[in-house]
Design a protein around this nucleic acid. Structure first.
Lengths: 240, 240
DNA sequence: ACCTGAACACCGTTCAAGT
DNA sequence: ACCTGAACACCGTTCAAGT
């Protein structure tokens, strides 16, 4: 930072938006684990306590950050049937969330009853109701969607962490292969098939976008089938 | 702790299992946020550094704790078709995980390539392969299942946190209702229907077990349909 | 060789003293 | 009335000094 920019930054009075934007940038660039009140204050050129005038505590800071990203998600497209509306909105959310990978963890780690999140959920529910879904079915469908409505899934193994680690030698790779073959043959078989499918031997093998849409479409198909059948939870419970 | 018990505890030499068990108990009773190396050491009546002889660091401690719980999950039942085998196993995992609510967060926050987790996943994949699923379909099905294979879903709003908070007065409840009605009418409508369904006005309204099984069965139905149709990812990609 | 007290480099947040 | 330096009560982990 040059002297000039530093001066200009310092002159701009701190406000909630500047705090939140700086926090988003910091989380994007340094990772959510590097986001501390002290570090954020330093980045803004203020004393740590100055932040507490604009956010009550770190929890509120994180809620606010999520709000910023949720605000970037496109509103529902108009004039589409429920399936397309829901699908496009989720894929839009996915694009937003992929730009800010830390949002997933923050969304997962807390109960998110902030206006931004509630507003998103409310308009999301609205897409099903507008599509003629009963309130009952909409309720259960929202549960089934869960965090997938944000465009992400809790994956079993997060490869993004692995990508940053040191490259493994051919030797250790061979040893890992041997270990996998004897102890986890099924995992190996599936992983090999995915890699073969991918064409590369080195690549991580899984097309995340394809996997996401596979599961999403499977769920949407199921929702549509239930809707067409006039499914109700009461009948489902009686059938048990 | 009486003097006698304290003596006995101190005489038992510390080992990895005792460290992990104590950590599990501490997380169960005090919550995962209260689990620190220092607090755990105190609980075991040792100096913090003594722990580092049995676990390399906190990450390894958490991995080990997950391993303890995963070890409690029932093995696959034999002689069942794939659908029942998978279903029963997931519901067994769910029972284990519900007894130790912190496991969800720990599983979500890390890339879990530990022997315990890999072993579980491997045997899980085995159930689909044994049911005649292609390796290809099994791969995508495992992705679609995601963390649901552990018996939990990322819910939008975690009510467990809310239950611990202070009870709200009738006044603030009415104000919240008013706020919801004007700003989040769709959420309110769904929430009201769920409560009515539940019979109570106060209850949290959602039957978590029902919601879980609703989504699980919807997915399993989809998997079965794909299996019967001889679905392949290659054909699915060409169709796009 | 083994064990561990003290220290290091952090946290989020409170609070009283200074302007 | 406003602002903030110092302090509090913690962290995980290193390391050197002590046995």
């Amino acid at each position: 930072m040059t002297q000039q920019v530093e001066e200009a930054t310092r002159r701009t009075p701190l406000n909630r938006d500047r705090v939140l934007s700086a926090a988003v940038v910091l989380a994007d660039e340094a990772g959510i684990e590097s986001l501390s009140m002290r570090r954020l204050a330093q980045e803004l050129g203020v004393v740590p306590m100055a932040l507490y005038k604009h956010v009550a505590n770190k929890e509120e800071l994180l809620d606010g950050m999520v709000g910023v990203i949720v605000g970037e998600i496109d509103p529902p497209v108009s004039g589409a049937d429920w399936r397309n509306a829901v699908r496009l909105r989720i894929l839009s959310a996915r694009r937003s969330l992929l730009r800010h990978p830390w949002v997933r963890q923050v969304l997962e780690s807390r109960t998110n009853r902030t206006p931004a999140v509630l507003g998103y959920v409310d308009s999301f529910i609205g897409m099903f109701l507008a599509g003629g879904f009963s309130v009952d079915l909409t309720h259960h469908v929202m549960h089934a969607l869960g965090s997938r409505m944000w465009g992400f899934t809790q994956e079993l193994f997060d490869d993004s962490a692995n990508a940053a680690s040191a490259p493994v030698t051919a030797e250790t790779q061979a040893a890992m292969f041997q270990e996998m073959a004897t102890r986890y043959p099924n995992i190996l078989e599936v992983a090999m098939a995915a890699k073969h499918d991918d064409g590369s031997v080195v690549g991580q093998g899984c097309d995340d976008q394809f996997e996401f849409e596979f599961a999403l479409d499977l769920l949407l198909d199921g929702f549509g089938r239930f809707h067409d059948q006039g499914w109700t939870s009461k009948r489902a419970k009686l059938a048990k």
